[in-house]
Every structure is written in structure tokens, then in C-alpha cells.
């Protein structure tokens, strides 16, 4: 499949205030490409939640953003603690956020479920102590 567009973002863990940069940029690129606004919203939500997860839990990550004629792919590979029980993390309401994060309104336990809800294909691979790989695909049509 031909790649119409591809971009790699580096995301640093730890700085909550800086978060949302990659997803904001992705959103504006998709607007420029003339993608339907419903699709843009799905991609932006998935990208934002993935970005927030890196910022809150991981050391750093690369986010690869690809637009092909048929779909939008977001691949996030982080270096961090990983998730011990992925099926638990996929349950709405389950969170390992710290009290500080919760006070700020993070840790609703809805990050991964929100990503899944807004994706057409969602894959997560976790290695405890190493990191997580997320593969998100969203169809354009």
C-alpha cells in the first residue's frame, strides 16, 4: 500500500504540561489532507490518550503516524514498566495512576478503552519491565 504521509514523533515521559503536542499536530495534518472530521476526531482521541499514557507511565516513546489511501496507522512503542495484566487495563475504570495524577483528573481508567473504542483495529503488546507497543488502525472510509 502506498504511503501518502508518514511522520515519527518522540514523546518524553513525565511532563504532563507538555502533553498533547503530537496529537495536536496529527490533527492539523489530517485537516490539511482533507480527511473527514469524524475520522479526524477518532484519530485525535486515540493519539491523545496514547500520548498521555506515555507521559504518565513511560520513560519515552516513538509515535509513528502513517496515512495510507485506506487507513491511518498510529504505532506507539514506549520504554517503560509495561502492563502486567493487559486485560485488566482494558477494563473501564481500572487504573494504576498515582494520587497526584488522579487529582488532576487523569486515571479514570479509560485511556486504553477510549483508544479501542475509536479504532478499527487495536493491538497491544506488553513486556513487563521493557515497554508497550500499541498498533492502532483507523479506516478512512
Amino acid at each position: 500500500m502506498d504511503k501518502a504521509f508518514s511522520q515519527i514523533y518522540k514523546i518524553q515521559g513525565g511532563n504532563i504540561y507538555n502533553a498533547g503536542k503530537a496529537s495536536t499536530e496529527i490533527k492539523s495534518i489530517l485537516k490539511q489532507l482533507g480527511i473527514n472530521s469524524f475520522i479526524i476526531r477518532r484519530v485525535a482521541i486515540a493519539a491523545y490518550e496514547a500520548e498521555m499514557n506515555v507521559v504518565m507511565y513511560a520513560k519515552h516513546a516513538t509515535m509513528t503516524f502513517e496515512v495510507t489511501p485506506k487507513q491511518i496507522n498510529i504505532i506507539v512503542e514506549d520504554e517503560g514498566p509495561g502492563i502486567a495484566d493487559v486485560s485488566l487495563a482494558m477494563q473501564e475504570g481500572y487504573s494504576t495512576a498515582t494520587p497526584e495524577m488522579r487529582e488532576m483528573g487523569f486515571g479514570a481508567g479509560m485511556g486504553l478503552p477510549n483508544i479501542k473504542r475509536n479504532s478499527d483495529s487495536f493491538k497491544i503488546e506488553s513486556v513487563v519491565g521493557k515497554g508497550i507497543k500499541l498498533e492502532i488502525k483507523i479506516n478512512i472510509n
Binding site: E49, M52, G105, F106, A108, M110, P113, N114
Partner: peptide, 9 residues
């Protein structure tokens, strides 16, 4: 809501 992901959802 005060939970950001809840608002997103």
C-alpha cells in the same frame, strides 16, 4: 466530570 478521559469518552 473531573476525569479527563471520561469527558473524552
Amino acid at each position: 466530570s473531573d476525569m479527563l478521559s471520561n469527558v473524552i469518552a
